[in-house]
Design a protein around this nucleic acid. Structure first.
Length: 732
RNA sequence: GGACCCGUGGCUCAGUUGGUAGAGCGUCUCAUUUACACUGAGAAGGUCAGAGGUUCGAAUCCUCUCGGGUCCACCA
């Protein structure tokens, strides 16, 4: 063995062998209990960011369970990331002086498809570099035909059972991106805007949006408000910039009598709350802003102006006409913006496909309360419940082409809608809806759709039957609502079972100064650069060590240095043991020599070793290793990865190397050597889920090519040894 | 407006059911050329943000305050 461990000589070579030998497949343990994690599918089009490196937690779990003898399946995939990807692609088009409107739907789709295919391999090879033991033979893409088919079936089932409606409802619309969004995709931002107190018939009312006045169809007050009660039910005449108009005065308790003047104009077509009021009171809905973000023909001379321009123009004209009583210039309120381009969201009346969420949410709440699903750390249950208990219907239509086109056909003659599993209805005059599904609609089905779309090639039944519900869903807490909660709802709906038993959430990896990494800020660090520099094992260990599950962490170079040194320490412990092999047996009997050849590397149970050990320090070390094994097992079972990593680090370095090896140096004999060797191999096994490469490299050198990856977890070995013993098999 | 997280030695963070404060890096002293200088032995360094409470005992539980961050929210 070389003096220094060099990860560059080891990692790619080992990964290749693992993959070629099929070690990533659950078939490695054909009779094992199924254990399954579905990888949160990264965006097929984008390189990995640091969040993805946190999937190391999943690899730790998978490797641990594989060593326990489970049929461990970690299923990879890629997400088409509908809107995200189309957004990136449109930017590229823009640079070339083109726009999406220059192409028809199919051409555009094909162009994005090719664009994604070009970039797709990058993400997969990056996951390999991190050592992730993913079963690549089972990988899926959200736009695979079989996955699409399953999404269609789910949509149809939802439709047939009354969960889907086409809503004439206000949606969050970004006039720049040209699509609507779900409520989750909208950001809220505080902003200072002029607050106009305008004369409105007999009233004065406050508004930030005088330009929507053309769409007013009522004036509202609180029913308890004595000041204005006499006007309720009456029609009033209002002087506007385009002449006089009449509106009704209504009473609604959504109006806060203490806000502004206690009077509000109601513009159902352009305000979420006004829309609610309008529905209750059967008000007309008059749209005055178009999908291009400009005022329309109903606004007279203001037609063609963008909202901001129109606001200014209308306010100035009102000022001239003496219709403004005062302007509060320091009014701070919250506006909605597009999470992608930051344009102010315009609530728009646009028929969209909605999923009724209330009943679905209830099932997802129930499974948590019944304990069928558990969160680690538990505090995230609160976020989950908060979302589900206040859920609103989910707009799943997007006005983009990159995605799964909604399988809904409208009859142009009758206006009737037909939902299918993808095939066009028979007969003429059917036209398919132009919209595609929200990406999260297909992502929400990922645990079951990936498993349904995988057949089990040994003929023992479908993957779905075998691996669903999956064991663990591990992802960043930032997509708990977007993804985890929706997977639970849709999973239960479609299959009758929870999609996973445990949810493990990891935190964000921030830059070394604790700031969120982002491409636009220029502080994003590519995880692969660190893998090059420190080795995958060190990067993996650094992400787990010293950071409680679910907490954010700042990337730390000193920590990476420490973990890299740790890989070298492990290597040199091995080097010491290897170098002393011959000398330890030099004066030994023939039996001992035989052990030196092969049997010294044999898996021994702790109990067998204790029988062998005559030296008290050896006996103590055996006990300590046994304790460590139990401790690590316990920590992994409770998802306390950092405890496990810390215990391993402390034990390996300061107990095993600093004390035990130093002590044993001067008294090596065949017995003590066997103990040393066995305990060291045990340690490698315990470390393997965390540091797969260095442990594998050493293990294979010690065990003549046998792989630690598919060897058994020490606790298992202990139990097995005990069983063998009671069955009368000889020890050693 | 609501919720959550964080505030522990110079820095980054652990601290698992409450039981005399821990790690890595950094600093200082010493040792050794050793399996490993990507080393070993040892040292200094913390009123655990602040205040109050529960308790025999609180970094840990409760209340409040201050500071940093995140998420949710239809006040026109």
């Amino acid at each position: 063995m070389d003096k220094v461990y060099n990860h560059k000589d080891v990692e790619e070579k080992i990964y290749k062998v693992w993959e070629e030998k099929g070690y990533f497949k659950p078939e490695v343990n054909p009779k094992g209990k199924p254990y399954c994690i579905i990888l949160p599918p990264p965006n097929a089009n984008a390189p990995l960011h640091f969040g993805h490196a946190m999937y190391v937690v999943e690899d730790v779990l998978i490797r641990y369970h594989r060593m326990l003898g489970n049929a461990a399946l970690w299923l990879p995939g890629a997400d088409h990331a509908g809107f995200e990807t189309q957004f990136v692609f449109e930017k590229k088009l823009q640079k070339e002086g083109k726009s999406r409107f220059d192409f028809d739907r199919n051409t555009l789709y094909k162009m994005i498809w090719d664009f994604v295919q070009e970039n797709r391999g990058g993400m997969e090879s990056q996951l390999r570099r991190l050592g992730f033991s993913l079963d690549w033979s089972r990988k899926k893409f959200t736009l695979d035909q079989d996955i699409i088919k399953i999404a269609y079936q789910t949509f149809k089932k939802l439709y047939d059972e009354g969960f889907i409606y086409r809503g004439d409802r206000l949606v969050n619309y970004c006039t720049k991106c040209g699509t609507s969004f779900s409520d989750l995709e909208v950001n809220h931002k505080e902003q200072k805007d002029p607050f106009y107190y305008i004369k409105y018939g007999p009233f004065v009312l406050a508004t930030v949006r005088p330009e929507t006045k053309f769409g007013d169809t009522a004036v509202a007050i609180n029913p308890e408000d004595k000041r204005y009660q006499k006007w309720v039910g009456k029609e009033i005449e209002v002087q506007g910039v385009n002449g006089k108009f009449k509106v009704k005065v209504i009473a609604d308790d959504l109006i806060d009598p203490n806000f502004g003047t206690g009077v509000a104009k109601v513009t159902p077509a352009h305000d979420m709350k006004d829309f609610e009021i309008g529905k209750k009171h059967n008000l007309d809905i008059v749209q005055v802003i178009g999908f291009d973000g400009k005022l329309n023909e109903k606004t007279g001379k203001y037609q063609g102006l963008y909202v901001r321009q129109a606001r200014k123009a209308v306010a100035e004209d009102m000022q001239k006409m003496g219709l403004i009583e005062k302007i509060d210039e320091n009014y701070i309120h919250t506006i909605e913006t597009c999470y992608k381009c930051e344009t102010t969201i315009e609530p728009m009346l646009l028929p969209q496909w909605f999923v009724k969420m209330e009943r679905l949410a209830k099932t997802a709440i129930d499974v948590l309360k019944k304990g069928e699903i558990k969160f680690h750390p538990q505090r995230f249950e609160k976020t989950y419940l908060d979302f589900l208990e206040n859920i609103r219907d989910w707009n799943i239509s997007r006005q983009i082409v990159w995605g799964i086109r909604i399988p809904a056909w409208k009859n142009s003659k009758t206006g009737e809608w037909v939902i299918t599993e993808g095939e066009a209805p028979k007969g003429e005059s059917w036209k398919q809806d132009e919209d595609t599904f929200d990406t999260w609609f297909s992502s929400a089905q990922w645990p079951f759709s990936t498993l349904m779309a995988n057949c089990d090639c040994d003929g023992s039944g479908g993957f779905f039957d075998r691996f669903y519900p999956t064991s663990v869903m591990e992802t960043g807490y930032d997509i708990l609502r977007w993804w985890v909660a929706r997977m639970v709802m849709v999973g239960i709906y479609r299959t009758g079972k929870v999609p996973f038993r445990n949810v493990v959430l990891h935190g964000l990896v921030n830059d070394p100064y604790g700031k969120k990494m982002s491409k636009s800020k220029g502080n994003a660090i590519n995880p692969l650069e660190l893998v090059d520099q420190y080795g995958a094992d060190a990067v993996r260990f650094a992400l787990i060590y010293g950071n409680a599950t679910g907490n954010d962490q700042a990337l730390s170079y000193p920590k990476l240095d420490a973990t890299r040194k740790f890989t070298n320490k492990l290597w040199n412990m091995g080097r010491f043991i290897e170098m002393n092999r011959t000398s330890a047996f030099a004066k030994a009997s023939t039996v001992a020599k035989a052990l030196a050849d092969k049997s010294a590397d044999k898996q021994n149970s702790i109990e067998e070793l204790l029988e062998l050990a005559k030296n008290n320090n050896d006996r103590e070390m055996i006990e300590k290793t046994k304790q460590l094994t139990n401790e690590i097992t316990k920590h992994l079972e409770s998802y306390n990865f950092n405890y496990a990593a810390e215990s391993l680090y402390e034990f390996a370095w300061h107990e095993f190397a600093d004390k035990y090896i130093e002590d044993i140096k001067d008294r090596l004999n065949p017995e003590s050597y066997i103990i040393l060797n066995t305990l060291y191999l045990t340690l490698l096994k315990l470390l393997h889920p965390f540091m797969p490469f260095v442990t594998e490299e050493i293990y294979q050198r010690f065990k003549f090519g046998e792989s630690v990856m598919i060897d058994k977890w020490p606790a298992f070995a202990v139990a097995k040894a005990l069983a063998d013993k009671s069955a009368g098999k000889p020890s050693l």
